[in-house]
Each structure stands twice: as C-alpha cells, then as structure tokens.
C-alpha cells in the first residue's frame, strides 16, 4: 500500500486526510523533512499560499520538495497547492515563488474576493460531474500544450472556458477543493496513478 503524505503546515489538511483514508491509503501528515522522505506521494492542501510558502522555507522543506519534484515525485495540489506548483503567479506578492512543476500561469484570486467564491458543477474527463468548490480561487490564465486539461470551467464572464483541473506527468492541480465536497473520486485518480 502506498504511503501518501498531506503537507500539514497550514490549511484544510484534515479534509484531505479524510478523503485519502477513505481510499485506504496510509496517510502521513508532513511537517518535517523526515516525514517527507517517508512518503511515496504528497498532497498540497488548500490554505493561504503565502503562508504555506513561508512555512516551507522555515521548515527546510522547500528545497527538499523542489528536488523531489524535479525527479518525478507525484504531487497533487488544490487551490493554494496549485499556486505553489505553477510556473507563474500573477497578482501575487512581489517575492512570491512557486515550483514551476506545472506549466501554467495562474492569477491569484482570479475570480474575485470571498464574496465571489462559488460552487459550480464541473465535468471531469473520465470521472463525470463533480461539485467544484471555488474559494478565493486561483485562475489558470495560460497553459502550455504539455499540460493535460482534465476539466474546464466557463465562468459566464465572457472570457470563455479555461482549465480548472490539470495534469502534467506525475503532478496534478485543481483550482477548486474536491476535498470539501466529500467526494473522493479525484483523490482516487491520483492514488490510482501511483
């Protein structure tokens, strides 16, 4: 059985743990380098991307995870996790860094502030309709061809369809929060790919 970590520095860690445990994975909360070295894959939860980025640095995990990502380590990021995995962050802090493991440009709070947060049904390739929960969500505004688009959204703002769930090799990212909707199907996709 695969050991799946959930980065537990800040954010909705518990919901991801619940999803993964329902799939009978061995789940490890990751706060230290030793814990990171003990897992076969990692989930980057929702939360505040600036806070998680800060805590990745102070805990010494930033470079260790970066090295692992370069050698094909499987990672699934939701919301703040997607921001951390992206290759370009627009409207972030001037010093905001990201891993560049997904060739996408994202705009922070790309759908607006909290009053614009929304739920919308999302059609996911090979899965069907899932409930998309978007909370101060990042918006994917540009993506390279090597990024596989698994779901899109038309937000009805005249800017057309854009990806909200993507995969590039072993790295997966969702702009929304499958962990909040109580539906483990997207986590199952990730776990089954390991």
């Amino acid at each position: 059985m695969k050991r799946v970590g959930v980065l537990a520095l800040q954010g909705d860690v518990g919901e991801h743990v619940t999803m993964l445990e329902s799939l009978e994975s061995v789940v490890v909360k990751v706060r230290t380098i030793e814990q990171l070295e003990s897992v076969d894959a990692l989930v980057l939860p929702g939360g505040e991307s600036t806070t998680i980025a800060h805590l990745l640095e102070t805990s010494g995990l930033r470079d260790v995870l970066g090295e692992k990502l370069r050698s094909g380590f499987p990672v699934f990021g939701t919301c703040a996790g997607l921001i951390l995995l992206s290759s370009e962050v627009l409207d972030g802090r001037a010093d905001q860094w990201s891993y560049g493991a997904l060739a996408v440009s994202i705009r922070r709070n790309g759908y607006g502030r909290q009053t614009a947060s929304f739920e919308s049904p999302i059609e996911v390739k090979g899965v069907g309709s899932v409930s998309g929960v978007f909370i101060r969500a990042p918006r994917i505004v540009a993506w390279e061809e090597r990024v596989e688009v698994l779901a899109t959204l038309d937000h009805g703002d005249g800017r057309g369809e854009h990806p909200v769930f993507v995969r590039q090799g072993n790295v997966w990212g969702a702009a929304f929060h499958p962990e909040l909707a109580g539906d483990p199907r997207l986590h199952r996709l990730f776990v089954d790919s390991l």
Binding site: G47, E48, E119, I135, H155
Partner: peptide, 25 residues
Amino acid sequence: PSKNPATTGTALVKRGLADMLRGGV
C-alpha cells in the same frame, strides 16, 4: 445558459474559507 452555473454565498463556500485558515494566525 452557462455550462457551469455558479452559486455564490453557499454555506460550503462561507465555511470553506474558515477551513482554509486552519493552522494559521
């Protein structure tokens, strides 16, 4: 009609932001 009808202000998105603040200051 939009392919993805969006609903704002639901209990899930309102409580959801609090979930995102967990473990924080």
